[in-house]
Every structure is written in C-alpha cells, then in structure tokens.
Amino acid sequence: MTEGSPAPAIEISSMSKWFGPFQVLDDIDLKVMPGERIVVCGPSGSGKSTMIRCINGLEPFQKGRIAVHGQELIQKARTLDAVRKNVGMVFQQFNLFPHLTVLDNCTLAQRWVHKVPRAAAEKIAMAQLEKVRIPEQSRKYPSQLSGGQQQRVAIARSLCLRPKVMLFDEPTSSLDPEMVREVLDTMADLARDGMTIICVTHEMGFARGIADRIVFMDQGKVVEEAPPAEFFDKPREARTRKFLDQVVR
C-alpha cells in the first residue's frame, strides 16, 4: 500500500508535553510513512488523544519536534495553517456546526479557507458525501441525523479539504453500539484508498483488521509498537499484556 516514498508523512521526535507540573507526554518518538495505518491504543489518561491533538496544533507541546510532510510544526499561525491543510481531524464529539446544513458544513472551509467557488465546493462535497454513503442527507441539519450519520458527515467534511493525513480521536466512543459499524466501515474504505491514518480507538477488531502498526501508550510513553499479529498474539511488554487482558477478555 505504501507508495515507496522515502519521506515520512509524520515524524515525531522526542516530543514532551506538560499540563502545568504534570507531564502528559514523555519523549514520544513516532514515524508514520505515507499510506500507513496506525492505531493508537492504551488506557484512558495515557496521553494518546493529547498526542494526536498535538499533530495538528490543537495542543502546544514544550519539547521535541513534529513534522508533517516535511513541514515542521511551530506554534505560529502561518505554519499551523500550512500543516492543517494537510491534516484532517475527526473528533469524538463530531463537532459538526449545528447552524449549518450537512452540505454547508462540508463546503464552509473549502470556500473560506481554500477559496473554492461555491458550485465547485458543492460538487466536491457531494462526491465525499457519496463516499460516506449519505448524499441524500445533504440538506438536513446535523441535529436531524443519528450519531453515526453525523460522524460520517464529519469524516466527509474533513475529506473535502483533500488532506494527506487523517487523524481520528476516538471516533466511535460516543456512538450507540449499533452505529459503530457504519463509521468503522467508512474508515476501512478510507484505509483501502491509501489514506495515511492515525486513529485513537478502543475497537480492537478494527485495529486487528485494518492497522499496519499498533502503538500502545501508557502514562505518556509509547510502550510498544508492533504489527497487529505480533501485538495481539505475542506482546512483549507486561503492561501491554495487562491492557489486552482487560480489553479483549
């Protein structure tokens, strides 16, 4: 699936972050190649969400560096914008704009950030809504959709900006169980299309089926990093085994 490009899509090197006196991320190193699918897991409070929020500058970090497609992330508006153009993000709470229709949610950033004319933006938006299989809902407002549908709109909204990397922050954690499947299927489609994905999730089935690599974090550190087969069947670390015992049962 990798296109043989030698430059990594995302390169995190010795990144640390503190909330006041508490160190939440401790010397993180992670390299993600274009087209790679990474699943990040770990107990709550392990810093996994914080880490991916750092990748598109939602959280500042104090030490180390992050580069996205060669563009180094510095807390300056100009470079943040450049990085964010390459990075799409999907949130646990969907965060659709409640005052706009589904279609307008998908066209707003295209029109104002990327200066795409309205008609062209709507065409792109409809194509993406088609891809997540809800084009018929385009005139509705987010509050009229189910959670699963909202999350798929949120994915489409990000895809409209043609990101090179997609970040998912627990995309299925606030969904009713029967809606988890549809969102995971959409993400699997995306993975099949060759998108670079970093996903924080507790869905171990998804991780096993889709991920190229699984990153296990605990207490702000990357504890273990392995392909799914190895990760699930013969984890090296004791902490990983303990975690897997709790999630997989």
Binding site: N56, G57, L58, A77, D81, R84, K85, V87, G88, M89, F91, Q93, F94, N95, L96, F97, P98, H99, L108, A109, W112, V113, R157, S158, L161
Partner: peptide, 25 residues
C-alpha cells in the same frame, strides 16, 4: 469547546472562526 477546535482543525483563521462558526451560534 469542540466547535472552536473543529474550526481550527479545518484551518479557519481566528476571524473566520468567529464570523462563520461562533457568532452565528
């Protein structure tokens, strides 16, 4: 808070976020 973050993640400037996302709400 997610509304502000979604605005940031989509690449809006502060003023765009304010006018397009926050103030209408």
């Amino acid at each position: 808070k997610g509304q502000f973050e979604a605005g940031q993640a989509l690449g809006f400037t502060r003023v765009q976020s304010l006018v397009l996302v926050i103030l209408p709400q």
